[in-house]
């Protein structure tokens, strides 16, 4: 019994510190499937696809994959995962036809954005404006840029550092709802704000 303890401890140490480079594949945060392919090992081309979630694969010598118990990950691995930044968030705000005025329904979205930025040190805020297909393309390029800048301006007024933010207008490109030219479509009059 006494003799077994040091042995167990030694086994734990071996498992805890990777002696050869190791890949640990995990499910995505949404629990989805993913894969990593080993394309080369010590200069030898190959294609060994690792798709078993909660697994460990050695990256030197022939890749071998074994299951791991995610509950028994090392403290270092857990700390590493816990330190991943939060997933970026994206919010779409809609505008009244031909204007840079937000629809009443989209107004509360601004408060959400301000809160998100304040909770994310080192945030990057990307504002992209769009229009529907009513009016000519050049005018819509300008309008979409103005929409993006309008939102950026409001966020700046609420204390978000403008140097964290960028605004671009994409006009009628990337319609959310496909329409022919010259069609008023509320779903296309929008600004998408991404906070990373």
């Amino acid at each position: 019994m006494n003799r077994a303890l040091p042995l167990l401890a030694a086994a734990g140490l071996l498992a805890g510190c990777a002696t050869t480079p190791t890949l640990t594949l995990l499910p995505t945060e949404e629990g989805k499937q993913g894969a990593v392919a080993v394309l080369e090992e010590n200069g030898r081309p190959m294609e060994t696809v690792v798709s078993e979630l909660n697994s460990s694969t050695n990256l030197s010598g022939t890749p071998r994959t074994r299951s791991i118990d995610p509950a028994k990950m090392s403290a270092r691995q857990r700390a590493l995962l816990d330190s991943l930044p939060p997933a970026p968030v994206r919010l779409t705000l809609y505008f009244l036809e031909g204007t840079t005025e937000l629809t009443p329904e989209s107004q509360p979205g601004l408060a959400f954005l301000i809160k998100e930025v304040s909770e994310r040190p080192g945030a990057e805020v990307q504002v992209t404006g769009y229009t529907d297909t009513l009016g000519d393309a050049d005018a819509n390029d300008r309008l979409s840029q103005q929409r993006a800048e309008e939102v950026l301006g409001v966020l700046a007024k609420h204390g978000i550092d403008p140097t964290l933010m960028s605004a671009v207008g994409r006009g009628e490109r990337n319609l959310r709802v496909a329409t022919p030219d010259g069609v008023s479509e509320a779903a296309n009059r929008r600004v998408v704000v991404t906070i990373r």
Binding site: P21, T24, L26, T28, A35
Partner: peptide
Amino acid sequence: RGTRFIVE
């Protein structure tokens, strides 16, 4: 190929 993983 689209996933979450650790390399050590």
